[in-house]
Design a binder for these strands. Structure first.
Lengths: 222, 222
DNA sequence: TAGAACGTTTAGAATTTTTTGAACGATGTA
DNA sequence: TACATCGTTCAAAAAATTCTAAACGTTCTA
């Protein structure tokens, strides 16, 4: 009994092709999910990505409540996340005459948004690391000179190791900078980043366009 | 009474310069913290970064228990995270003769490790997004041709929007590929990614070295 | 064979992050 | 003035993540 009904229903599923509306709905949901994942991957809240997705696929600006309904989330949560999107320049507000509601639309100049994030977030992070590393290395340099005892050897060892890491982060930071400013990057020597014999970073000013290569020159300590 | 004692102690802190041992300890802790943050930033567990840091600063390989002691963590936690590090190729195991313990050391060829991660994780993620997008777009293309009704307009609108995103992810994916394979990337046209008039991605095979530019040619749909 | 030394697994504890819903202030309307 | 709408804030709930400690299986040693 039950079995046969289930069977018939399953058959129906595969037989009847989904209606256009249903298909659209599926495609949209998939898209929203994807951007949610992307957001999470980059350390943002999943909802941020989902909100952006909803706005991105909307021909006209939406209100807070529209989005609450669409994503079945709470007003508070949407409010917080939409403002985060605004701060990152991924979403902008639209004011309508004699309408007290706020409307939002997605920034569709993707590259603008992405490079904004790279500049504001990724670079800030890398700078912090680089600064901290440089500070530690200064300190170690001092120690390896002034203080005697077993610390000297350790200090020198630490210095060697840290230098490798600093190069890497410097390279990453320069890469980000190039992305934001529209330069060019050559990775062909990236694998030599850690070598102790001098392949360091440099920026070549070549006919107005910056170019980052991994060869000679210094990545001058802090 | 109490006040004056606190005061004296605070004075002492600023007067007595920290001993070399204490300084070393501070530098090390700072470093460990930093790599913890880096790990977290990239979506790994904080402890993973910390473990790597400890090994990175150790002249000789360490055992599980060494690390447990150093980081004041639990054996289970360290065990799990050290194996994750191994899987990512950031740490390798060392076997010692007639010693039942496992010793670990950091992979110091940083670029090898980084490009491994890019290849294994970041690219996998971007591929998934691109595939899903392409699939949705195929579906929308079909709909905009076959089905009539209001869905057609929407489908076309979605297609336009999604195309922009797909270009971005394609570009990102190619960038990753170049990083891993040692090519070169020119970002000077990146800001035109979203334009509807043709600036697309291409890989120019130029004297054996790959080069990714953002101009003409197709990023051929899946 | 008993017991010690190691590394792994795992259930549940602890912590952190995310979400909710109600309260609130501000602004407009009848 | 009373009431409705709208967005924000925040304490508490819920969910997800990370951590711990004990149990366990192996391998080695006495």
């Amino acid at each position: 009994m039950l079995d046969s009904r289930l069977f018939r229903e399953r058959r129906r599923d595969t037989e009847t092709p989904p209606s256009p509306e249903v298909q659209m709905e599926e495609v949209t949901k998939e898209f929203i999910n994807n951007l949610g994942r992307v957001a999470a991957f980059f350390g943002f809240q999943r909802l941020m990505g989902q909100l952006y997705a909803v706005l991105f696929l909307s021909p006209e600006p939406l209100t807070l409540d529209d989005m609450v309904k669409r994503l079945e989330s709470s007003k508070g949560n949407v409010s917080i996340n939409i403002r985060a999107l605004e701060r990152w320049g991924l979403v902008r507000q639209i004011y309508k005459w004699a309408d007290r509601k706020n409307y939002y639309e997605a920034e569709t100049d993707i590259w603008k948004a992405v490079s904004g994030i790279l500049q504001e977030r990724e670079r800030k992070e890398s700078q912090q690391i680089i600064d901290s590393l440089s500070q530690s290395m200064d300190m170690l340099t001092l120690m390896s000179k002034s203080a005697g005892g077993p610390e000297v050897t350790t200090a020198q060892f630490y210095l060697e190791r840290m230098e490798v890491l600093r190069r890497l982060f410097q390279f990453g930071d320069s890469l980000l900078d190039m992305m934001v400013r529209g330069g060019a990057v050559d990775f062909s020597n990236a694998s030599k980043l850690a070598q102790s014999d001098q392949p360091k970073l440099t920026v070549n000013e070549s006919d107005g366009l910056d170019e980052l290569d991994l060869a000679e020159v210094d990545c001058n300590p802090n």
